[in-house]
Simulated assay, not measured.
Amino acid sequence: MIIMIAAASENNALGKNNELVWHLPNDFKRFKNLTSGHHIIMGRKTFESFPKPLPNRTHIVISHQENYNPEGCIVVNSMEKALEKCPSNEAIFIIGGGEIYNLGLPFSDKIELTRVHHTFEADAFFPEIDPRDWELVNSEFQSKDDKHLFDYSYQTYVRK
């Protein structure tokens, strides 16, 4: 199963200047719990936004830069090649950024989205979720608190 996992605002903002524009510690924990032990597919800029590779995950980086070869990563130049590097009988996570989500959407079976209930100025956006193609099967609202400045919801979509 191919799963896109993201946090996006009401206007589908993902981030600006290769950084998230909010801080939701519970969402980071959820991301870690869901993706640990799996292959994660990302773009080069997303990979480079991490201080170091994420533990207990196989990193597949899509890049068009020749000779790009970060230690411990599999580097390919297309979504198709990234998916070929993954086991067919396991969950595979597409983790961004915006361009990679657009490339991955046609291949995806499921979307695990943290919807941040706010709008932000951004330069990277999550693709529009077409209700003709996707069904919202679960939504769990989370109220803002002293560690989370914004209300948010964990939403699960499955392809129709």
Rank of each mutant, 00 (worst) to 15 (best):
C86N: 04
C86V: 12
V116H: 05
A13Y: 03
G96M: 07
G104P: 07
L20W: 05
K147T: 15
N11C: 07
D151Y: 05
S88A: 11
F28T: 13
F31H: 07
S88K: 14
V76C: 02
N26Q: 12
N26E: 13
A91R: 09
T35K: 10
F150G: 12
I94C: 01
I129L: 06
D151E: 08
Q65P: 00
K147W: 14
E19H: 09
I41M: 05
R44V: 02
E84C: 06
D145F: 01
L105T: 04
H38Q: 01
K110N: 14
E71S: 10
S143G: 07
F125N: 01
I94W: 09
P53G: 04
K45N: 02
P55W: 14
I60N: 08
S143Q: 10
F93W: 06
T46C: 00
A13P: 04
R30V: 15
L20R: 03
L24P: 03
Y68A: 03
V75T: 12
R159H: 03
K16H: 10
I2H: 06
K81Y: 06
L149T: 13
I3P: 13
V158Q: 12
R159P: 06
H59P: 12
P53L: 08
N11H: 04
L103C: 07
V75R: 01
G37S: 02
Y152W: 04
R44N: 02
S108K: 07
I94A: 00
Y157L: 09
I95T: 01
W134I: 09
I94L: 10
I5S: 01
R57K: 05
I3V: 11
N26A: 15
I5L: 01
R30E: 06
H117I: 15
G37F: 13
I111W: 08
I92M: 08
F107G: 12
N89D: 15
L136H: 11
N12E: 06
F28N: 14
P25Q: 03
N67L: 03
K81T: 09
C86D: 04
T114M: 08
H38N: 12
K81L: 14
E71H: 10
K160T: 14
P106I: 09
S143C: 15
A8H: 03
M79A: 07
M79D: 01
E112K: 10
S63P: 06
I41P: 00
I92R: 08
K85G: 02
H39Y: 15
R132D: 13
P53M: 02
E140H: 12
V75H: 01
G104M: 01
K45I: 00
L113A: 08
L34P: 00
V158E: 15
W134G: 07
E140N: 15
K147D: 11
V116L: 07
R57W: 00
A8Y: 03
N56W: 08
F120L: 02
E66R: 07
G15I: 04
E121L: 03
I41K: 00
D151H: 13
G97H: 04
E10I: 10
F150M: 10
E84D: 12
H39E: 10
E99K: 05
S153C: 06
S63L: 04
E112T: 14
I2G: 11
M1N: 10
F31S: 06
I62C: 05
P70N: 05
N102P: 06
E128K: 11
